[in-house]
């Protein structure tokens, strides 16, 4: 099971979300729909990933799409505390250069 939820609105332009569980082709449609709703109107989206166990290319494609949308608004996507297996995938694909990745307590603005 997975859950994407809003943790808090950080300011007028920034929001902190968290995503738990697993993202794959089975639930990507629902997660993408939730992401569109929760990020509407924000320029900076921070996503706490500490409880995300698995993400596949469909999930990464969703995050790439979010970066693309926000770049058009001079915004950004920040991934917070991805687990080692998720971080390895970000590094393998070079996506760690596309997203800002924050670790530890520096996470929340």
């Amino acid at each position: 099971m997975n859950e994407l939820k809003m943790i808090k609105k950080l300011n007028q332009d920034a929001v902190l979300l968290s995503i738990d569980g697993e993202i794959d082709i089975f639930n990507i449609g629902k997660v993408r729909e939730q992401l569109v709703q929760l990020t509407d109107g924000f320029k900076e989206v921070q996503i706490d990933m500490k409880n995300l166990n698995f993400i596949d290319s469909t999930g990464l494609g969703m995050l790439i799409g979010l970066v693309r949308d926000l770049k058009g608004k001079n915004g950004s996507v920040v991934l917070i505390n991805p687990r080692p297996q998720v971080m390895r995938l970000l590094e393998t694909t070079g996506l760690n250069t596309v997203f800002e990745v924050r670790r530890g307590d520096e996470s929340i603005a």
């Binding site: 290319s57 990464l60 790439i64 770049k71 995938l89 393998t92 694909t93 070079g94 250069t97 596309v98």
Partner: peptide
Amino acid sequence: ISRLESGGLGLFIIRS
């Protein structure tokens, strides 16, 4: 990736 293209990402990951 630098152009934010995600097409073909699955096979690229497998090969990597």
